[in-house]
Design a binder for these strands. Structure first.
Lengths: 210, 210
DNA sequence: GACCTGAGATTTGTATACAATACTATTTGT
DNA sequence: ACAAATAGTATTGTATACAAATCTCAGGTC
């Protein structure tokens, strides 16, 4: 509900109300809230009231910056540990991604799926449960999720191309190269988001002026 | 209980049993287990059974490596954002730490407290809730916690000295320097642990041979 | 008019009961 | 002797009740 925008930033999340809305009791709702809180999608006051977290543009920059560092690290480790089988899995994920964006109407859902598989496979090869756990809290974010839908065709193809370059780094087992590409890949995604966000903000400002 | 070793690695954590042991009902125990799981102190099987996580030396290395990266990043950000007041707070924390270790019998608890305040103050200045959240899952670990008790006097003084060097980097607002010192500081702590661990392992091996 | 106070409403914390699922060990069939 | 089936036990998932805390807002005080 938060990801889809159904629950706006700042909305209070009372356990009873959510329970009724979801048709379950408070117990599972409580557990879900705790998990969302650890993902920073939900914040709690000092008196334990829950609210949908308000993500300022600075928070988003913060998240992307950390994600760039951690995914870069994962790419380096993955390159150093890469097996031929794993490399083939990663290639396959990017092939699927490539097919999705070459359709007459780009298949954004297919792109997102291939993208997720691609990054998950790398994280898998990196072989650090802890790194995976840290990244898990950074990837399922409203912002990341909604960004791809604003991507134009050339942005999708640029992502695909960066993935291909990553694969080249993996094929050569070059950790430093892989880290550099991955860091740039994530930071480019951030700026794509920031630009789109600025554009949307200006647009809504113009609408308000009319 | 896990930190003190009262619950050994691999022990099953049944909610009912823990509840009785702690004199509460299953509900708060469940929440605690979920949190410990997200900190990787507890693992769950695919069928939701909880066990005390087994930390291999590789897992420990993994945790320290990530911690070194994240604390290094925090130090860099802190140096770039340092105010005079915050710098004084950090200096004060290290003064307390220094007093604790200069006593006739080093006050390890005092050292740990000063150390925690020192790192917390830096994280505070770094000003990234997200970075703080990620690091929180890495610092409260059985391993980190038990290591300081094996420190000799010179190891404690080396920590103090590295903190002083960090303060010098902060005073000059030199992010790159602060990051380098901090990364080294954490990695040195890791090797202190690894050496002690190796020593303990050999010792218990000798004892078994007798 | 600003600020405290307290009763009622709201919300969260905990205990407990029962249902659903997973595990263990014995039995049964081959 | 070994594997599959099964009954009984153990464990977790969910619902619900009540206690504790927090919040809201009307009414009073300075």
């Amino acid at each position: 509900m938060i990801l889809s925008g159904e629950l706006p930033a700042g909305a209070q999340l009372a356990e009873e109300a959510l329970a009724e809305r979801c048709g379950v009791s408070r117990t599972p709702v409580r557990e879900a809230l705790r998990r969302l809180e650890s993902d920073l999608l939900v914040t709690r006051t000092d008196t334990q009231r829950s609210f949908v977290a308000d993500w300022s543009i600075d928070d988003v920059a913060d998240a992307f910056e950390l994600r760039a560092m951690l995914e870069g690290k994962a790419a380096r480790r993955a390159a150093e540990r890469m097996s031929d089988e794993a490399l083939e899995r990663i290639r396959a994920a990017n092939r699927r991604l490539g097919e999705a964006i070459r359709k007459p109407v780009p298949d954004v859902a297919g792109f997102l799926e291939g993208n997720r598989d691609f990054h998950a496979a790398i994280l898998d090869v990196a072989g650090s449960r802890r790194l995976a756990a840290l990244l898990a809290t950074l990837i399922e974010q409203p912002v990341v999720w909604r960004t791809a839908h604003h991507y134009g065709r050339e942005a999708l193809h640029r992502s695909y191309g960066e993935h291909e370059e990553l694969i080249a780094a993996f094929a050569r087992r070059d950790g430093a190269w892989a880290e550099a590409i991955m860091t740039g890949h994530i930071l480019r995604a951030y700026h794509a988001y920031a630009d789109a966000h600025r554009g949307l903000a200006e647009q809504s400002q113009r609408e308000a002026a009319e």
